[in-house]
Design a protein around this nucleic acid. Structure first.
Length: 1109
RNA sequence: AGAUCCGUAGCUCAGCCUGGUUAGAGCACUACACUGAUAAUGUAGGGGUCAGCAGUUCAAAUCUGCUCGGGUCUACCA
């Protein structure tokens, strides 16, 4: 054990951090903090896996700080918090990175490079920056188990994923279907939403748009339309499209159930034939000019600009349901289904178009959904190259967009429009500018195209997911009810399929005709199947896998395996990979290789669900969603009880950080320069984690100075004097009641702080907790307790009062180190260790192994805290009065005068009188109770109490109160009641209806703050002047001592020349001066040439200070 | 396009849930003081149409609606 507290010359956070980190690693403090809690109630935390094929940024520091501080806090509160790190290793970003590095495209895979080689490269590349990540993790003090991470590409991990999928399969939640996905014909590949959201993919394009006319067929359902149109008339539905090339594939028209529609009689503007058209009422204005309404039909000729029209019927969309129409472009019909009907869909709006949506189930997600609902079939007259199939008449073989960069490409949309015009099937053709997604690689427009895909039927458990979501504590709450809640309400089935190479393969094998299939749930099951297939099918089937079974669960190996169906047919694997979000969503189970290992941990709730997770808000519909979905589907449980979604980190001007803008902040540089603790503290206390934060290093500097600098100074102050007096906390703990007022006060405030911090941390509000600690350290501990108590630490003997001061300050520093440990793990441990290495008070060698402080309710004394506040306010007022009247603090003054409203206030101030007096250097305090005429008072209405009673009369009453005379106020104070005269009405008020403030004491210098008033007597008597001069001299000699480099305890001899103005001060305060400056003699000599020149109240002279030998 | 969060001093943020008449703090700036904690501290000062508009109310930064600006997510849809 050290005998002395370590003293330091200056604060160097990065250096402290290095030292502490070394200690942690050498003595395995993290491991101990977990193993120490064996058997304790676990606090379950899940680490969302980052992808290590990109470099970490400063935004990772905030979310990891948040995660770390919660885990550290819970550990200190006695829980065992296991934290496995993880790596997200599959998926498109990895593949794209590899393709870029190898200079290949997707098409080259399997040709220029084998799939095996390609995947091997991915496997290596994906952990490219693992070291960098691990270094950041250690450097920023994020405690997470880096030794045993879960890695999503490992066989164990994938095996758990397969088990999960098999569970879903068994529950009937896994199915195959055609879905509409973004597809790039130019690149010949489907695109993920990720790719679609690359910057610059959405471009403004001008397309030819058509309002097409679909001819209604008369039937019972449509009779009302024909009746309204009149005998022998034709009725058309108008539908708008920006993609006329989808019209040959049209199978339906969708209307809104509650939207109002009209049947309008008019002429076709191109063919001039009389027509009756159906259009949404709200949109009729777009197609018909107001001047033409109810115009003269018989007199109209095609030369007339204004086409007459009139409404002949009005009805709701639901009345149109299932009315049939003639196919617009009858090139081909779907193989199955009952097409060419009017459907109802909730996605229809009246914002643009006609309120009737042309529905081609092959080329739109909404279309597909509503089409499926009505069973109208599907018709796909465009192939995967983006050209019409050969059964589309004159359009056969034409590319729907210019995918081949043909110089004389003719827009097929235009030709379709022309054809429709000629056939009396177009009501309007025009160019329209809108944004449309483009393939980020080929710059060509994307198609929405039906592709085969496997889905998880999340919609089947939607209600349960919604219900369970309500039990999750979201921070902030609005994200859970809002963004996430609404997302759940509008969920669609989860498209699992990805046509890629590097990812978790879908463990489903099928016969060629699709009638038989199997979903594999474990490696053992697959190996069994491998052997069985070989036995049944014979030959070379699975030959390479018979001996050792399968060794790598990735492509291409899984694809080489053929299984056999119960009826003896070969089954091949469905070629798709699984969405990487499935990888991360299943991590609660896969990280433990459940259920093949650690089965009880999850079954018994020791590792599931999580008590707490936290990630960026961008994960709301990513990880948070997939975790929740899988938790509900697999275990009918939430996957996490509390989730904190933190906001983004923006640059100091509020822009998103991006490499392109060059405003990214390097976390290493920041930490090296300012320290991890200052960075963490800044990020946590600057704003609530869920607010976006504007990252500014100036803020870190401020934290460094303000909090850590102050705390460091306080510690150093303590260490210096504790070392002088040999304080090692060996004496008995002095009971609080035996300590002076100010000690009990700071301990009281300290305990209030403990209570507050605990409450905040339990509520996952670290920002509030950090701010509270900061205020305590700065306002209370440093700027009041230490400032007022300085003398107690260096003056006088080492006995009761001094020991009490040391014990008190020690306790404050120690508890503060514990309170701040979760947020600033390094500095807190440094301070804790410095303290504990001398006192040996605690057996835990690190603050992170100690228990979080518990509140000592007995120590909390609200009355005491209140009167100390009074002392602070009064001192502040007196100091401001001194400033105003130019009386420096070193000059003692005789008295201050404080009007008190009641006995309680007087008693409170009396108890802290000595503190005020020494702080502001005043001899006495006098209290004024009641003296009408002596104190001038000010009266203010209490709006809150009066307002409810007075209502509309409030303004007049306030004016009347403002007009009360001093005498009136006195009456009110004496009687407790007063009758106001407001607009000739007597309105009684009582004391609680007003605030009365002593505003002024005529003839005195006065200051007020709130209800408090202080007057200062600024007369300086000769005695006071002497004392002031004496203090000045002490101050000058102390400075000489310090400048001469004397030790604090050195004794000195002093010679001063005979200065008449100071002589009486020297005579009368000789003893005082000697005590203060530790002088054995203070001699007045007639003349003095040697020594140091000083100036006291405008007199200049020399002082000779000699160290005693 | 929809959902959601945000907008208070030059900067970072409190206050808003629960309405009350002089809207606070820190930083920065200016001046003065203090100085056995000194790269600290105190006192004073300047600095705000609380994004805008309308409404509710005796009273709105605070409640309601709309608008504008910024962020994020989802979608891109005829």
């Amino acid at each position: 054990m050290a005998s002395k507290y370590q003293e330091y010359n200056q604060l160097n956070l990065p250096q402290i951090e290095q030292e502490i980190r070394k200690e942690w690693e050498q003595h395995q403090i993290f491991e101990k903090s977990v193993s120490n809690r064996d058997g304790a109630i676990p606090f379950v935390f899940y680490e969302g896996p980052p992808s290590a094929n990109g470099l970490p940024g400063i935004h990772h520091v905030i979310s990891r700080s948040l995660k770390d501080l919660v885990c550290r806090y819970k550990t200190m509160k006695g829980h065992q918090v296991k934290r496995k790190s993880g790596w997200d290793t599959h998926g498109l970003p990895v593949e794209l990175g590899v393709e870029k590095a190898l200079g290949i495209t997707k098409e080259d895979i399997g040709k220029k490079i084998s799939i095996a080689e390609y995947n091997e490269t991915c496997r290596k590349e994906v952990l490219k920056y693992k070291d960098v990540w691990e270094e950041l993790t250690r450097k920023m003090g994020y405690w997470v188990d880096l030794q045993h991470p879960y890695i999503t590409f490992e066989n164990d991990y994938i095996e758990s994923l397969w088990w999960c999928m098999q569970q879903l399969y068994k529950k009937g939640l896994l199915y195959k279907s055609v879905s509409i996905q973004p597809y790039s014909p130019a690149a010949g590949t489907g695109l993920s939403s990720h790719e679609l959201n690359q910057p610059g993919t959405y471009k403004d394009v001008k397309d030819t748009t058509v309002v097409a006319m679909f001819k209604a067929i008369a039937s019972d359902k449509s009779q009302f339309l024909f009746d309204a149109a009149g005998a022998g008339e034709e009725v058309f539905f108008l539908a708008w499209t920006t993609t006329p090339w989808t019209l040959p594939s049209n199978l339906g028209l969708t209307v809104g159930e509650n939207i109002d529609y009209q049947l309008v009689k008019t002429f076709n503007p191109y063919t001039h034939l009389p027509v009756n058209v159906v259009v949404a009422k709200d949109l009729a204005g777009k197609y018909f000019k107001a001047e033409g309404e109810n115009g003269d039909f018989s007199a109209w000729t095609p030369e007339d600009k204004i086409i007459p029209w009139k409404v002949v019927a009005g009805f709701k969309g639901r009345q149109l349901e299932n009315i049939r129409y003639e196919q617009l472009l009858p090139f081909a019909q779907p193989e199955e289904g009952d097409p060419f009907r009017v459907l109802l869909g909730d996605f229809v709006t009246t914002e643009d178009g006609t309120g009737i949506v042309h529905t081609a189930p092959a080329f739109g997600a909404d279309d597909n959904r509503v089409g499926k609902k009505y069973g109208i079939g599907i018709l796909t007259l465009v192939d995967r190259q983006g050209k019409f199939t050969d059964n589309v008449g004159e359009f056969s073989g034409r590319y729907v967009k210019n995918y081949k960069n043909e110089t004389e490409y003719k827009d097929v949309d235009v030709d379709i429009a022309v054809k429709l015009k000629k056939e009396n099937r177009a009501f309007r053709v025009e160019k329209y500018e809108h944004t449309y997604p483009h393939c980020w690689r080929t710059d060509k427009p994307v198609l929405y195209y039906p592709l085969d895909a496997w889905f998880i039927r999340t919609t089947a458990v939607k209600d349960r997911m919604v219900e369970l979501n309500k039990t999750i504590q979201w921070k902030p709450a609005a994200t859970g009810t809002g963004r996430f809640g609404q997302w759940l309400e509008n969920m669609v089935d989860w498209n699992l399929s990805r046509s890629r190479y590097w990812g978790t393969p879908l463990p489903i094998w099928r016969t060629e005709d699709g009638t038989e299939e199997i979903c594999i749930g474990s490696i053992a099951e697959l190996n069994d199947g491998i052997r069985k297939a070989n036995e049944v099918l014979g030959g070379d089937v699975n030959k390479a896998y018979l001996h050792d079974g399968i060794l790598d669960l990735h492509k291409p190996y899984v694809d080489e395996i053929i299984l056999v169906s119960p009826s003896g047919k070969p089954m091949r694997r469905e070629p798709d990979l699984v969405d990487v979000w499935f990888d991360s969503g299943a991590m609660p189970y896969a990280q433990w290789h459940y259920p093949f290992e650690n089965k009880e941990n999850i079954d018994k709730g020791q590792a599931f669900p999580a008590d707490f997770i936290a990630e960026g808000v961008d994960q709301t519909r990513g990880w948070f969603y997939t975790l929740h979905a899988l938790g509900v589907m697999l275990f009918d449980n939430v996957a996490y009880k509390t989730v904190v979604s933190n906001g983004l980190v923006l640059d100091k001007d509020g822009n998103k950080m991006s490499k392109r803008l060059g405003n990214v902040v390097d976390p290493f540089q920041t930490i090296d320069q300012y320290g991890a603790d200052a960075t963490r503290w800044y990020m946590i206390t600057n704003a609530s984690p869920w607010d976006n934060m504007k990252f500014n290093v100036e803020g870190i500097k401020e934290v460094q100075r303000k909090l850590f600098g102050t705390l460091y100074n306080t510690y150093n102050f303590f260490a210096m004097y504790a070392n002088l007096d040999g304080f090692r906390f060996e004496e008995k703990y002095i009971p609080l009641e035996e300590r002076p007022e100010i000690d009990r006060w700071i301990i009281s405030v300290l305990n209030t702080l403990v209570k507050q911090v605990t409450g905040n941390m339990d509520e996952f509000e670290p920002t509030q907790a950090g701010r509270a600690v900061q205020e305590f350290v700065d306002e209370h501990l440093s700027n009041w307790y230490v400032r007022l108590c300085r003398r107690r630490f260096w003056k006088g003997e080492y006995e009761h009062d001094k020991i009490s001061a040391f014990q008190t300050l020690y306790e404050c520093l120690e508890k503060v180190s514990q309170l701040m440990a979760p947020v600033s793990p390094f500095f807190s441990d440094w301070m804790y260790r410095n303290l504990n290495s001398v006192s040996g008070l605690r057996s835990e060698s690190s603050v992170h192994l100690s228990n979080f402080p518990a509140v000592n309710e007995v120590a909390v004394d609200k009355e005491l805290e209140e009167r100390m506040q009074l002392a602070q306010d009064i001192s502040s007022l007196v100091l401001s009065l001194r400033k105003k009247t130019n009386n420096k603090v070193r000059q003692p003054l005789q008295k201050i005068l404080i009007p008190v409203t009641d006995e309680h206030m007087k008693a409170q101030i009396t108890l802290v009188e000595h503190l005020i007096k020494s702080e502001v250097n005043v001899k006495t305090i006098e209290y004024l109770t009641e003296t009408e005429g002596f104190i001038k008072k000010k009266i203010k209405p209490n709006f809150k109490s009066l307002g409810t009673r007075m209502g509309a009369k409030m303004k007049a009453v306030a004016a009347a109160i403002g007009g009360m005379e001093q005498h009136d106020i006195a009456v009110l104070e004496k009687d407790g009641e007063f009758g106001l005269n407001v607009e000739n009405e007597r309105i009684p008020i009582v004391l609680s209806d007003v605030d009365i403030i002593s505003e002024d004491i005529p003839g005195w210098t006065v200051a007020n703050k709130g209800m408090l008033t202080v007057a200062l007597d600024i007369t300086i008597s000769p005695e006071l002047l002497d004392e002031g001069n004496a203090r000045e001299l002490v101050n000058r000699i102390q400075k000489i001592r310090k400048d001469s480099g004397f030790e604090l305890t050195d004794r000195i001899n002093v010679k001063v020349p005979d200065v008449p103005a100071l002589k009486s001060a020297l005579m009368n305060f000789n003893d005082y001066i000697c005590t203060e400056i530790l002088a054995d003699s203070l001699e007045i000599v007639p003349q003095l040439q040697e020594g140091t020149e000083v100036e006291v109240n405008e007199f200049k002279f020399n002082v000779l200070v000699n160290k005693k030998r």
